[in-house]
């Protein structure tokens, strides 16, 4: 009898421990107010930017929790709207187009206004956007561009049997495969889903794909001598970095918080993005270390 009782107690203890552990996750710093959960997408630049914001807040005694490298926008947006993620470094045009399926003029101010309106209904506030932007670019190898006289995306119309390589989410996006077959009318274009950048670059170089989706702030484009095709029909709108913040967090901490974030955002230029991406993507440094260095040299830490 005692043995059975004991085994039950042990069993129950396991369950309770497990539940408590799962529920707690990491400790909440409730004493100072609500924890600000900082999220990021699943590519290095997003991790660097999230680290930049998270470390700034941390240095100014805001309780934060980092949830980085989560996934695509399609995966993260429901969590952003539900308040599971409070702060996310976003990109103007993609956020509006992919996140809400809304069209607008392509300049940064128009996109920012439309994005603010769209997010307001979801309890999320759009902070000031950065001078720096990172656009989706469609690249081809130099040889392929020369052989087919390619300068603009429209020039692809003359090439038969084309394959675009992009991450899974590209397939359905109007700013990606959907836009190339739609707006640009490239009906001959096929799509190959290749999740990671390095694999896409390799596929581009060995001819498995003809066109690859990369980011304009990836130094590898210049290093490999890839040709970024000009977006002559303006599929891609302004893509300035823009932090978006949960409204209740913004209200709770007031303008002290938003001004702090804005001051950091103002320093993020396209050159900064190129430089920081190079350190992570080419040199193998860690996003958190790269972010810390940059914040320190800019006087934020």
């Amino acid at each position: 009898m005692r043995n059975i009782f004991r085994s039950r107690v042990i069993g129950a203890t396991f369950v309770v421990l497990a539940l408590v552990a799962t529920a707690c996750g990491s400790g909440d710093d409730v004493a100072d107010g609500s924890t600000i959960t900082v999220g990021s997408f699943n590519f290095p630049e997003s991790q660097i930017l999230a680290e930049i914001y998270a470390q700034t807040l941390e240095a100014n005694d805001y309780p934060i929790e980092k949830k980085l490298n989560l996934g695509s926008r399609e995966l993260i947006f429901p969590s952003l709207k539900s308040g599971e993620i409070d702060l996310l470094p976003e990109y103007l045009g993609s956020s509006l187009g992919v996140g809400f399926g809304i069209d607008s003029a392509s300049d940064a101010d128009s996109v920012a206004t439309a994005l603010s309106d769209a997010f307001a209904a979801e309890g999320v506030t759009v902070l000031q956007y950065a001078p720096g932007e990172d656009k989706n670019v469609f690249v081809v190898t130099q040889e392929f561009a020369a052989a087919n006289n390619l300068v603009t995306i429209s020039d692809l119309a003359g090439v038969a049997d084309l394959t675009l390589g992009g991450p899974p989410e590209c397939e359905n996006r109007d700013t990606c495969y959907g836009g190339l077959t739609g707006t640009y009318g490239l009906s001959q274009l096929k799509f190959e889903s290749i999740q990671e950048g390095a694999a896409r670059i390799a596929a581009l170089e060995n001819g498995e794909i003809d066109v690859g989706l990369l980011f304009s702030t990836q130094p590898v484009i210049v290093e490999k001598g890839f040709v970024a095709l000009e977006d002559d029909k303006v599929l891609i709108r302004a893509e300035n970095i823009v932090p978006v913040l949960n409204l209740s967090i913004a209200d709770e901490y007031g303008s002290d918080l938003t001004k702090l974030i804005d001051s950091v955002t103002a320093k993020i230029t396209t050159d900064v993005l190129l430089e920081l991406n190079g350190k992570v993507e080419n040199e193998g440094l860690d996003p958190d270390a790269v972010a810390k260095d940059w914040l320190t040299s800019n006087g934020f830490l």
Binding site: N42, P44, N69, V280, E281
Partner: peptide, 8 residues
């Protein structure tokens, strides 16, 4: 994952 998730 992070080691593989870099353009190089």
């Amino acid at each position: 994952l992070n080691g593989f998730r870099k353009s190089i």
